[in-house]
């Protein structure tokens, strides 16, 4: 397989009160064509910033974003606009991302107008097709306004809008976090089906490891702007290498009362991203931390076939 998207030493800074906040710090990874890469981590770890940086909605301050051989970083506005039809974004809050005063049919058709599809009949045909694909009845829904739909249906509308240009890469930023459990499963299944049908490559961002597991081929774990671990999904769950991945796995509440919740989990909360710890950013909460961890930033290293971890003392490794 070949990489459709690759990030090389990607860094994104925000200026906060005269200081630099490294929301994404020196992250390198790739997403193969046809693959779903899950991206997990806790609030504020930089997941959304990374997604926005890929689309150049937030210009990176360092490193490269390469999409299908083209470097997006530094691409002019006009060239980026043309590129945008190949990369789409789906957000967490479906209701807020739809213009409340526009009809559903027009919302979904909008990307077609932007890229210059002038034939109204052609636009209608494509809107109907994609609405049907995402499980909305065009005859009922096209003329309605967003407030007439539930959160789950609004997410279907957002997915339809993202797919109408037949993109190659779709970045889903917490697409089901705002939805109820019973609706969440519908949308996850829909995304899987759309991926097959349109041959999509997905970057699937979420904080919920179980949700990410359900859809991802590989998973990348971030902490305070840094990539901690990246591995094939099954491997990551069976044998996490990075202590932070292990902590995340232990913290998931399991819907089974015979499984006692893990106690004595690494205490404390993530430190401020404005003032990250020296060396390994996880060291203030890591049970394995030692002097080396405070002194040296751990580089991302392959610990087993296809499994990479940025840790001086990984939990697993080659025998």
């Amino acid at each position: 397989m070949s990489a459709l998207l690759s990030l090389e030493n990607l860094t994104v800074e925000y200026a906060v009160g005269g200081r630099s906040l490294f929301a994404v710090s020196d992250v390198s990874l790739h997403v193969d064509r046809g693959e779903t890469l899950g991206l997990v981590g806790e609030s504020g770890c930089g997941k959304s910033t990374l997604g926005r940086a890929v689309l150049q909605l937030r210009r990176p301050t360092g490193g490269k974003v390469v999409f299908d051989g083209t470097e997006l970083t530094g691409l002019g506005a006009e060239k980026m606009r043309l590129m945008r039809r190949r990369l789409q974004l789906i957000f967490q809050d479906p209701i807020a991302s739809l213009n409340p005063r526009r009809r559903i049919g027009d919302i979904i058709a909008e990307p077609l107008i932007i890229v210059g599809v002038t034939d109204k009949a052609e636009r209608d045909r494509r809107v109907r097709e994609v609405m049907t694909a995402v499980g909305l009845d065009p005859d009922v829904a096209m003329g309605r306004l967003p407030h007439e739909f539930s959160g789950g249906q609004c997410q279907r509308i957002c997915i339809a809008r993202a797919l109408i240009l037949e993109p190659e890469l779709v970045i889903c930023d917490e697409p089901v976090s705002a939805l109820d459990v019973s609706i969440r499963a519908q949308i996850l299944n829909l995304l899987e089906e759309m991926k097959r049908r349109y041959g999509l490559t997905l970057l699937f961002i979420a904080h919920d490891l179980a949700v990410v597991k359900a859809v991802s081929d590989r998973i990348a774990v971030m902490y305070l702007g840094k990539l901690c671990e990246i591995a094939p999904t099954e491997r990551l769950f069976a044998q996490p290498a990075h202590p932070y991945t292990a902590l995340l796995l232990d913290a998931i509440p399991v819907p089974d009362p015979t499984v006692r919740p893990a106690t004595n989990l690494a205490v404390g909360e993530p430190p401020s991203p404005l003032d990250p710890p020296s060396g390994c950013r996880f060291r203030t909460r890591c049970p394995r931390a030692d002097r080396q961890c405070a002194a040296e930033v751990p580089p991302l290293r392959e610990v087993a076939a296809g499994q990479f971890a940025a840790c001086h003392h990984p939990l697993t490794g080659p025998a």
Binding site: E42, H207, E269
Partner: peptide, 11 residues
């Protein structure tokens, strides 16, 4: 809250 913090608060 995040899962790791959630676990601590529930504890």
């Amino acid at each position: 809250l995040d899962v790791t913090v959630q676990a601590q608060i529930l504890d």
